[in-house]
């Protein structure tokens, strides 16, 4: 089987190689791809949308519709992971495990306690618990705000430098994931609950689609941000720029929440109690 598939794959590769003969040279500035549609983007972006980062302009405006669905794809993945993995039956074994902070004695409870033991004395731990590592925990808690700020920066500066909603969203999500990794999943959940992630991912995409629908409501075509100019008291070109910005916000929100959602479900096998 392996050999057959190897032969097949090699054969296929050979065919592909043969087809590259008709390609324009790599990096040729006169290749069809470089002279047909893209020149307009390069030349007109600034005057049409006032966004120097052409990729952002094309991504969120010229081909903003694609991007809306790209965000929807992420959202879909989040919902899919939730749907596939989330389950509410408790993990086999003791319901809860606490550790007495002073002595290190570990208490297992078969059933959920009526009253949560005080956090000062007892700390709830996972059943595959390892002691928290002072260095990692502290470094991460110091780094996380910076990472988050950086994520927000990336979202906000998508117009002028590489980045934008998606990258920023991933960075934001990664910061929460980092928290879950360095501390534990419960801590991360305490900051960003399951429902919050679920809602935020939907709301993020909703912002995107909502901006588009708003354009529709203003009597223009879907996602034609120019229509939003009168609402924001700016000229159409800046309306496009602002429209792109709002849309990127939505993307960022959705992506962040979704990444966290997926991580939570993957790492805890859908029980959201303890993770990697």
């Amino acid at each position: 089987m392996k050999l057959i598939s190897l032969a097949l794959v090699v054969l296929l590769g050979g065919l592909f190689m043969a087809a590259t003969a008709d390609f324009p040279d790599w990096g040729d500035p006169a290749s069809p791809a470089s002279v047909h549609v893209s020149p307009r983007y390069i030349e007109k972006t600034m005057e049409e949308t006032s966004v120097p980062n052409i990729v952002t302009a094309v991504l969120a405006d010229y081909r903003g519709y694609d991007t809306m669905f790209e965000t929807a794809v992420v959202f879909t993945a989040g919902v899919a992971c939730f749907l596939l993995l989330r389950r509410r039956d408790p993990r086999p074994g003791p319901e809860r495990i606490y550790r007495h902070q002073a002595t290190g004695v570990i208490v297992e409870m078969r059933h959920k306690p009526a009253k949560e033991p005080a956090g000062e004395v007892f700390a709830r731990i996972d059943d595959d618990w390892v002691p928290h590592d002072l260095i990692i925990m502290n470094v991460c808690r110091l780094l996380i705000p910076f990472i988050q700020l950086f994520g927000l920066y990336v979202i906000a500066h998508g117009h002028h430098s590489p980045g934008g909603g998606f990258q920023g969203g991933v960075i934001l999500g990664a910061s929460i994931i980092l928290l879950a990794l360095s501390w534990d999943l419960r801590t991360a959940m305490g900051r960003l609950s399951e429902a919050a992630t679920g809602l935020m991912s939907a709301v993020g995409v909703f912002i995107y689609a909502g901006v588009g629908a708003m354009c529709l409501a203003m009597g223009s075509n879907f996602l034609d941000y120019e229509a939003l100019g009168p609402l924001m008291f700016v000229d159409p070109v800046h309306a496009r720029s602002l429209g792109i910005f709002f849309v990127e916000l939505g993307v960022g929100l959705a992506v962040m929440a979704t990444m966290v959602l997926i991580y939570k479900n993957l790492a805890s096998e859908g029980r959201l109690d303890q993770g990697l």
Binding site: S34, V35, S38, Y41, I42, E43, L59, D66, T67, E70
Partner: peptide
Amino acid sequence: TVDYINPLPHVLMLT
């Protein structure tokens, strides 16, 4: 146009 790399494939690939 020749000064800037074609942005369209990048957009597509982000997606």
